[in-house]
Design a protein around this nucleic acid. Sequence first.
DNA 1: CTGAAAGCGCTAACAG
DNA 2: CTGTTAGCGCTTTCAG
Lengths: 297, 297
Amino acid sequence: VRQASYVVNRMAQGLRLREARQVLVILPEISNPYFSEVLLGIEEVAGKTGFGVLIGASARDPEREDQLAQQLLTGVVDGVLLMNGRLPPRLADPALRHRLLAVAERIPGSGLPTVHIDDLAAAQAAVSHLVGLGHRRIAHIAGPIGNVVTAARHKGYVAALAQVGMAPDPALTRFGPFALDSGEMAMAALLALPTPPTAVFCTSDEMAIGAIRTIKAAGLTVPGDLSVVGFDDIVFARAYDPPLTTVRQPRHRIGCDAMRLLEDRLNGIEGPRRGLVLPFELIIRESSAPPKHHHGA
Amino acid sequence: VRQASYVVNRMAQGLRLREARQVLVILPEISNPYFSEVLLGIEEVAGKTGFGVLIGASARDPEREDQLAQQLLTGVVDGVLLMNGRLPPRLADPALRHRLLAVAERIPGSGLPTVHIDDLAAAQAAVSHLVGLGHRRIAHIAGPIGNVVTAARHKGYVAALAQVGMAPDPALTRFGPFALDSGEMAMAALLALPTPPTAVFCTSDEMAIGAIRTIKAAGLTVPGDLSVVGFDDIVFARAYDPPLTTVRQPRHRIGCDAMRLLEDRLNGIEGPRRGLVLPFELIIRESSAPPKHHHGA
DNA sequence: CTGAAAGCGCTAACAG
DNA sequence: CTGTTAGCGCTTTCAG
């Protein structure tokens, strides 16, 4: 009977089976290459198990976020991957817990498992690299205040300084959005300081590129006058001039593992309570070098 | 009766209404900032009218592509936005025509309306800019052979040369994928020529950045020794060293208009038969300048 | 204008 | 082991 070109109606199937075989990914900004590569990993494993991936981009706006969250309640999606660091209020119901997973950014107070790297350790490794090179006046171009990732990386920055008995100078940390212009502006402020830093640790490659731009515009060189370290290892990091020393995140794997974990949870498999911590990697390129007037390590 | 926290079950609603209020976007690669920004526009408009956006990334692979196309047949999505330049065989049915729209890349032979820029004119404008600067030996780092966009931009390149009575030298056009390394390799080959070009028109900013990298690695400067022009105006174009002269595509608007047009089609409104041609803009920055030994314009 | 009922296409349970 | 049937939650039609 069912030969020719029969295809099941997934709407009816979903109604009957009470599952949509779709997941929603809520992300703060898709134009950032970081997120899109995680998304690629998600999509890849989802495809293999017949899951569809819905995206909820433009989601810095809480109203839009709530509208997206609604999708889980209406049954169009079976689960939600949260990459925006916030748990929409209507998803707070404990009965929904097993349908949710935080990705890249932990959601404090939610108790949700998270797939991510150890941001503190990663930042500490990056700053220790600078310290090892002989730098002592190291600035930190940080993310937006209130953000969990920003906080973790800042702690790592402080920890690396503490390891050599230094206290952080508050004037050397600048908070702001994870964007290129934000890096440019922060660097300008740092350069205007009475005693500018000899090295800068930036919390994203985009910011690092912005910082380098400002440094070059001021007639200084990288790493000659200032060393710069980024974070993420986006495609353009190795292609920039100079190629960026940065922390590589296993973006693709974060996506794959997150989707796998969510599927498990949907199937009733609890999995690790706190989620997964994946390894990062410090990629040393040419934007970091010993300081100009190196008074010994 | 329906007070408290009642939410309609969209699965049942969809079954009854015979519509999913979801669209699928098939894209070749999401990590490319170009596509992600178009996607953002799509998502934005879709959100306003209550449509969900499913993504089909990893779709250079025809098998995966067909699997994705299946989604339309099974009724999970009402329409498909095709950004990969191909019409999956199972969607060739004329009855499905009004559920499809090509975006950015025309699909030859499909007769599908397309939302895009005039690639030929844009490439011609870019190359004419180089010609106007006094360049005569201009290379073209092109996209992959067989691609419609590649062909259109190549025609634009040829047309710009023809305007000053020049025939293109086949050795000066290098075809390859729209990627950074592809730009690097193509440039290396161009530099190895007996008479290297004095300017290069690249079919994407990523390729242009790759090309500049190779030029710098060879000890030459941009635009001192060679001028480079890109295409797309991604975020990093203005931040590169030197800032890239490039063709800006209205990516966000392409996404918005495409989604709007698709919704119209789903509602039975035919709309423009050939689709929409949106304006591009030549952004002149610092990677292009007159040739070193300028023997008059 | 309000209320009951049919049926969208499927799967799972049950009867033959 | 094959064939029939109930019902998933909604909307729409039709009767009251």
